[in-house]
Design a binder for these strands. Structure first.
Lengths: 178, 178
DNA sequence: CAGAGCATGTAAGAGGTTACATGATTAC
DNA sequence: GTAATCATGTAACCTCTTACATGCTCTG
């Protein structure tokens, strides 16, 4: 169900084709809700049936035609309703922690290598986020409400990556000095 | 596929019935890999077919009989192999961040209430983790390798909750002073 | 003229959720 | 005697992933 709201959240910001949405889910929203284009097209069909979004066929001469989707008044209403409903606790899924949990099966050095790879990934992701912060949110104090909200989602991403890095820097020495 | 490895990770630590596993997935491993008992029973069936686990029927007079599952040598081998394979990046799914992303649709005060509820949840989860830390890992320096690994998964959980709390404490005032 | 990007889709299969079902024992 | 715990399962349904498919335009 949440995918529907993730799509609405993007459309609340600006109209999109399915293709545009898929790209957004490959960055920005995709950082906290992943979806493939197949999921998106299916969900858009459902949302249109429900009347939460509507589409307009845009004829293009230079490119393939496209369906431009927009959120409807009903869709906005449903989004607002959902925001106030209790938020479902996230069910975390971290392959890395499964590996660590079973880490007793392999030598510490091997785990250290696994963690170093992970550390590198989080470092790159942090850099990506920080580049977005510098480029798109140079003065957060002056942001209007809607953009301030989006800025805060980015801040969460940044803090999350920093937290992973700090943990890696605790875990790697801990495994090394055995 | 990862569910299989999550089950193996638990069985690598100690033999379990399906029921025991389901309870573990309701705490400990469940903190980073959620699964219901139905998923677990189905997966155990598959794993037994593959020969990665084996089961023994335990007849009990006071309670229902149970199947006690144990990891096989092949299962251990597969687990070790998987640990060294590249770790799939986690696809995050955070309902809360969808809500914030679309936060422009509702007044800031309403979002603040949503965040305060979330903050409370993370605070409770942190307390749960810290209680486990105090009770089960009073002196982490002296832990043998396998338990040290499990301890580090707990440390990740703690840091993650702390990071969410710190973010809430940034986001709430940011929304309030508009 | 090859490859990347635009734009949309089908189909099959794996993974996950929810509801229903059974039946015994133990604790209050 | 009512609820919780132990213990295992079926069935239906929804969601997600992966692979395959088409065809056009623009860029180098």
């Amino acid at each position: 169900m949440s995918l529907a709201y993730a799509i609405l959240a993007v459309l609340a910001d600006h109209d999109c084709s399915g293709y545009d949405l898929a790209k957004q889910f490959d960055g920005s929203v995709g950082y906290f809700w992943a979806a493939t284009h197949q999921q998106i097209y299916r969900e858009l069909g459902r949302l249109e049936e429900l009347g939460w979004v509507k589409s307009d066929r845009i004829e293009q001469s230079d490119r393939p035609n496209k369906n431009l989707f927009a959120i409807t008044a009903l869709g906005q209403q449903e989004m607002v309703k959902w925001i106030s409903e209790p938020t479902k606790p996230t069910r975390h899924k971290e392959d890395l922690l499964i590996k660590l949990f079973a880490g007793g099966l392999v030598p510490a050095e091997q785990l250290v290598r696994v963690l170093q790879r992970e550390r590198e990934r989080h470092l790159q992701q942090l850099k990506t986020y920080q580049a977005i912060e510098v480029k798109h949110f140079p003065s957060p104090e002056t942001l209007p409400h809607p953009h301030r909200c989006q800025y805060l989602t980015l801040r969460q991403g940044i803090r999350n990556e920093q937290s992973w890095l700090a943990w890696c820097d605790e875990a790697i020495p801990c495994l090394e000095k055995q």
